[in-house]
Amino acid sequence: MTRTKQVEAEDIIAITGMSMGDIVDKIEELSGQNVFACYQCGMCSAGCPMAEEMDLLPNQVLHALQIQDPEAMTANSMWVCASCYSCQVRCPKGVDLAKVMEAMRQIYLRKQLDHVSLNGLTHREIRRLPQIAIVSSFRKKTG
């Protein structure tokens, strides 16, 4: 799939107009979750059906947010997340990671930043990609 260029760490401030600290605060506000409650047991990653495709495992995303590592926002993990809530039902600390992922997506989506460029898809890709994948790209794009 052709993607728009991955966001680089130094671009984050330019794109979002926020520091990593502000981003973490905003994520907590949007998701209603305390990312610092996570004690890194890894149960979310162990049960995540999409973890294989993620640059950072779900638990690593939370850790990156805790230490304000921009990698949280540059990794593909938030876009790969299928919002299946497997992580949320297992989390011993009650962190709804699916909501955190959604909040992270919102940080970008509210900037009207294209993550999947439909015009960039070839006919072959459109034929071969599962429809649900394309539709969910729309949703993420418009959300």
């Binding site: 047991c41 890894g42 149960m43 162990a46 973890a51 495992l57 638990n59 690593q60 297992r90």
Partner: peptide
Amino acid sequence: GKVAKIVDEGDHLTVWGADTLSGER
């Protein structure tokens, strides 16, 4: 990493875990 799920496959069990140090499932 904490185990998320255990599946009984009859002659063995499959344990789903994550190695949070290497970042691998």
